[in-house]
Amino acid sequence: MPAMRPTRLVPISCRQGTACRVLALLAGLLFAGLSGAAPRALVVQNEPHLQHARALVAAALAAGGVEAELVDAPHGNERRNLHMISDGHVHVDMMPVTPARLRLVREGRLRMIPIPLDRGLLGYRINLLLERRRDMLAGVRSAADLRRFNMGQNVGWMDVEVYRGAGIATKEIKDWADGEFALQMEAGLLDLFPLGLEETLTHFLPHFRKKFPQLTIDPHVIIRYPWYRFVWVSPKADADEVYDALSRGFKMLVDSGEFLRIWERYRRVPSPDVLRGRVVIDIDNPFYGPELVPPAWRWLQILPEAP
C-alpha cells in the first residue's frame, strides 16, 4: 500500500453560518499565532478507507488551533497500532474501540476522543463471501443460524470476541487487507468475512475485487452490534497539545456542522435499499454498549432503516 505524502493543513473555516466560520477562523489564527511556530509534524494513521477520519482529524486540529503537518503512520495491525500509539511513536490514530484500548485509557496509557467517526455505521456488518456461494445465508434469521458458518476476522480484532460471544465460530487470519481471505474461502476454511457496511460498499468491495473478483457481498443478512471508531491520542507529553486541540476542534466541528459536511465529502449514508431484503441480526458487544458515545455526540449516529 503506497504511503501518502505529508499534507500541510490550514485551519478550515465553518461553511455554515458566518459567525461560526469567523469564530473558527479566529480561534485557529489565535492558536497558531500563539504558538508562533512552524507547523509541527504529527504522525497520524492513514489508510485508504480512513480518508474521512483523517480529514476530520485534520480539520479538528486546525479548528483546535494546531497547525500541523500530518505524517503517515506506518501500517500495521491493531496490536502494532496500539503499541505504536501508546508508546508515543504515533500521535493520533482512528481505530475502533476495543477492550485493550479501553483498558489502556483506564490505565492512562492512551487518550480517547469518543467521537463516532463512522457515525455508528461500523456496527453494521455485511458479509463478504464467494460469488458462487452468494445465497448461502438465504435462510438465516438469527445469530443461532449463523453458527453453522465459519467466520474470518483479522488477528486481534475485537469483533472476534463479539462473534465468539454470540456462539459463532470465528477464525483469526493474518492477511486480509487485499482480500486474501478469498483463498481460504476457496479452500473451505472460511465461509464469511464480515466488515463494516459503509466502508465495504464504499471502499473494500471494489478494492478486494481487483485481486479477487470472485468476492461479493451477501444480500441476505446484516449483523449489528455497538461498534465505534474513535480518535485516539498518544499519552505522551508531546501529544498534550494535540489532544487538547482535537477535543476542542471536534466540539467546534460538530457544533458548527462542519463534521457532517466533511464526512459526507468522503462517505455516504447507505441507501435504504441496502437493507431491503436483508435480515438485521443484533448481537451483543460484550465489552461496551452505545452509552460509550457521549450524549452530545450520539446524534451523529445514523440508524438506517429498511424502507
Partner: peptide, 8 residues
Amino acid sequence: VKPLWDCD
C-alpha cells in the same frame, strides 16, 4: 520482522 511488527 513481520511477526514482531504484527505483535504476533
